[in-house]
Simulated scan of single mutants.
Amino acid sequence: MKDRATVLCVRDDRILLVARERSRWALPGGRIRRGEAPHEGALRELEEETTLAANQLMYLFQFSGFNTLHHVFFADVEPHASAQPSNEIAKCRWFAPVKIATLSSSVPTRGIVELFFRHISVLEPDNMWRP
């Protein structure tokens, strides 16, 4: 099973997704390199794919995909920093949580987003995070 660092960035009640050319939307992230800690991979992948640098990174949970174990992190980024596609990424866009279920996105992306918002709604039952 491959290890992947996966990053959730939330701004103004929207989640950042990225996509390669002619590919589905996904959360920023990628394979963790040999000798690299999962949080180091998350920071590196976020910056490589979106040019965003995280102020803080918080480990959330693991998510098992078909052949990939996602180490999921929440990244706090500057409120006015602009996400720009970089490296293999062709598009970066912020989406409302309810929109993600209707996009052409990967199964792990939809599952991770659902788990995240389910967790948030348990912690803060009356907030606006509910999809």
Score class of each variant (00 low, 15 high):
2 K>Y: 15
2 K>T: 11
4 R>N: 14
7 V>W: 02
8 L>I: 02
9 C>T: 15
10 V>C: 07
11 R>K: 13
11 R>I: 02
11 R>G: 04
11 R>N: 08
12 D>Q: 11
13 D>L: 07
14 R>W: 10
14 R>F: 07
14 R>A: 09
15 I>M: 13
16 L>W: 02
19 A>R: 05
19 A>G: 13
21 E>S: 09
21 E>M: 11
21 E>Q: 06
22 R>I: 14
23 S>W: 13
23 S>F: 13
25 W>G: 04
25 W>H: 05
26 A>S: 11
26 A>Y: 05
30 G>R: 01
30 G>Y: 01
31 R>W: 06
33 R>Y: 02
34 R>M: 10
34 R>Y: 09
35 G>H: 00
35 G>S: 04
35 G>M: 00
36 E>I: 00
36 E>W: 03
37 A>K: 09
37 A>T: 07
38 P>F: 00
43 L>Q: 13
44 R>F: 01
44 R>A: 05
44 R>H: 02
45 E>H: 04
48 E>Y: 07
48 E>D: 06
50 T>C: 07
50 T>V: 02
51 T>S: 02
51 T>E: 03
52 L>H: 02
53 A>E: 08
54 A>L: 12
54 A>S: 06
54 A>I: 03
55 N>A: 10
55 N>H: 14
55 N>E: 08
56 Q>T: 14
57 L>N: 09
58 M>R: 15
58 M>F: 11
58 M>W: 05
58 M>E: 15
58 M>K: 06
59 Y>F: 07
59 Y>N: 05
61 F>K: 03
62 Q>T: 03
64 S>H: 06
65 G>C: 01
65 G>I: 00
66 F>L: 15
66 F>H: 12
67 N>L: 04
67 N>P: 08
67 N>A: 12
68 T>D: 02
68 T>K: 03
68 T>G: 10
68 T>M: 13
68 T>V: 05
68 T>R: 08
70 H>C: 05
70 H>L: 07
71 H>I: 05
71 H>Y: 12
72 V>G: 01
74 F>W: 11
75 A>L: 04
76 D>M: 10
78 E>T: 10
78 E>V: 09
79 P>V: 08
79 P>S: 01
80 H>S: 07
82 S>M: 11
83 A>F: 03
86 S>A: 12
87 N>K: 15
87 N>R: 10
87 N>E: 13
89 I>Q: 11
90 A>N: 07
91 K>Q: 08
91 K>L: 15
93 R>N: 10
94 W>C: 04
94 W>E: 03
95 F>S: 10
96 A>W: 07
98 V>D: 12
100 I>G: 13
102 T>R: 14
102 T>S: 15
102 T>N: 11
104 S>H: 14
106 S>P: 04
107 V>A: 12
108 P>R: 00
108 P>V: 02
108 P>G: 00
109 T>Q: 03
111 G>S: 03
114 E>M: 14
116 F>K: 00
116 F>N: 05
116 F>C: 04
117 F>Y: 06
117 F>D: 14
118 R>G: 11
118 R>H: 12
118 R>L: 04
119 H>E: 04
119 H>F: 15
120 I>D: 06
120 I>P: 06
120 I>R: 10
121 S>E: 14
122 V>S: 15
123 L>M: 03
124 E>S: 04
124 E>T: 07
124 E>I: 04
125 P>D: 15
126 D>H: 11
127 N>G: 13
129 W>I: 12
129 W>K: 09
129 W>A: 10
130 R>I: 13
130 R>G: 11
130 R>S: 08
130 R>F: 09
130 R>P: 07
